[in-house]
Computed example of a mutant assay.
Amino acid sequence: MADVVGGLAVFAVVIAVGWLLVRAGAVPVGSDTVLTRVCFYAATPALLVTTLAGADLAAVASRGTAVAVVAELLGIGSAWCMQRLVLHREAAESMIGALASGYVNAANLGIPVLVLVLGDATAVAPILLLQLLVLTPITFTVLDAITRRGSPSRFATYTIPLRNPLVLAVLVGVLGNVSGFDLDAALRGHLAELLHTLGRIAVPLMMMSLGMSLAATRMRPPSALAAQRRARGGGAVGGAGAPDGVAVVSGVAVPAEPVHDAASRRALRWAVAWKLLVVPGLAVGLGLVAGLHGTALLMPVTTASLPTAQNVFMYASRYGVAKPLARDAVLLTTAGFVPVVLLAAAVL
């Protein structure tokens, strides 16, 4: 427990360093965008390749990862039923509410948190594949059918996951592992040295960019923020844009205005509670049924406790559905997941 608390303290200090760099004017506003892209396109893929290339794939396909995957699927499915049948939200709004309740930030926050808590980010690979190769296409299909917003570039839309550098890194790492490719011997060891060097900077850069993004958002009014994003082409990693008054950087959506209507506030409260309490609870229950205890159980519980992914906000923006709910769920679950992880580490 003390190790986890100490690790999270270091985690917080690195975020604070990024925040101070922007507030002090040592780096320009918007620097977080550069760091996020470095992580997304270079550092994090390198970390995934080296991690998976040398991992025990039998451990990756363990009961723990199965529990994590099933907990997320059950969390999203049950949240949809709650949003649709209990809160009586429209079908498209229920889909976004369900994703906000269970679709986790597996890359930007999942990797550093798992490294911190468990010392290994291998377990994030199945979650990434589930979300990007299964949940994302299903979401596009359902929302296209509901909103009737098919586009002439539908092929490009549906193949986004296959062009995602994180997915490609997972596939390369797994293929290298299965084929027995000796990464350390390739190019006289220089390839492994390159990948390890890039991989080592992934976690601190993610945390520093998060601090920079929070500082930059607080320094600018919403209109100025939107203008700057439009001037530089706007958009979060992956090419999706953000509407006026919303910052989506470093994997976190920072709201510029509150959710106004009572129905949306109620749906938001349920989504946040589902993400931070129900889904981790499902992971605990499923893990105990599967015979997991201690550290083995902590892995799926930690994964289930991760905050809502920024991708949910991108999907809501793409289809013009429940954007305030998605935006605020990302922010609130990002702020609230640390106590849940600390509690899980203390108990397990």
Rank of each mutant, 00 (worst) to 15 (best):
S62C: 08
T65D: 13
R269L: 11
M1R: 14
H88M: 01
E93F: 00
D261Q: 01
P258K: 02
M299T: 10
A226H: 13
P324L: 12
V338K: 01
T141Y: 10
L130H: 03
V203I: 15
F337K: 02
S209Y: 04
V312W: 02
H260W: 09
V27G: 01
M207N: 13
E257N: 04
V86T: 06
L183C: 03
P324M: 10
L297Q: 05
Q310E: 12
F140H: 06
L74T: 01
R148I: 05
A240M: 14
G7H: 03
R23S: 10
G199Y: 00
A61R: 04
G7Y: 01
A43S: 13
V341K: 05
E193C: 05
A66T: 10
H293A: 11
G291R: 01
V34G: 02
V289A: 12
L175E: 09
G189V: 08
G199Q: 02
D56P: 07
V321Y: 01
L292I: 03
A267M: 11
P45V: 05
L306M: 15
L73P: 06
L166R: 14
L118F: 03
R163P: 04
G6V: 05
D56R: 13
A68C: 04
G110P: 06
Y103T: 05
R229K: 13
V272F: 05
V272R: 06
L114G: 07
L214Y: 00
L171V: 15
L325P: 03
T122K: 11
S209L: 05
P28E: 10
I138M: 15
D182S: 06
W274T: 07
A24M: 11
Y158K: 05
S31E: 04
D3S: 12
V340Q: 09
S78T: 14
L162V: 13
V10R: 11
L175N: 05
V170G: 14
P221T: 14
S94P: 14
G291T: 04
M95F: 10
V203S: 12
A98R: 04
L166V: 12
E90K: 13
A335S: 07
P222M: 08
A344F: 07
